[in-house]
């Protein structure tokens, strides 16, 4: 799906837990997520702290979208 969106001319960032799969599929902008059943959350934290974690990841995703890339790039930090 990532590739078809990119092919349509829309920049796309893939937020996912298993980065090697995303690399194999062919995503260009990749942001590693927290865990498979809760990629953008952490149920061990309280609600506010968890939302902070989610916000950080979304901000990282937006940052990736604002970054020119020259092939597959994993945004670690």
């Amino acid at each position: 799906m990532v590739k078809e969106i990119e092919r349509a001319g829309i920049p796309v960032v893939h937020v996912c837990t298993v980065v090697p799969i995303s690399l194999t599929v062919g995503a260009n902008r990749i942001v590693p997520a927290v865990a498979i059943p809760h990629p953008l959350g952490n149920p061990n934290l309280d609600k506010d702290a968890e939302k902070q974690v989610r916000r950080k990841l979304v901000e990282k995703a937006l940052k990736a979208l604002q970054t020119e890339v020259d092939g597959q790039t994993v945004f670690e930090d």
Partner: peptide, 16 residues
């Protein structure tokens, strides 16, 4: 993706 393009979407966040 065609619909997104027609709707004027500038970027997509895809979560897995």
């Amino acid at each position: 993706a065609k619909e997104l393009k027609n709707d004027g979407v500038d970027a997509v966040i895809l979560t897995s």
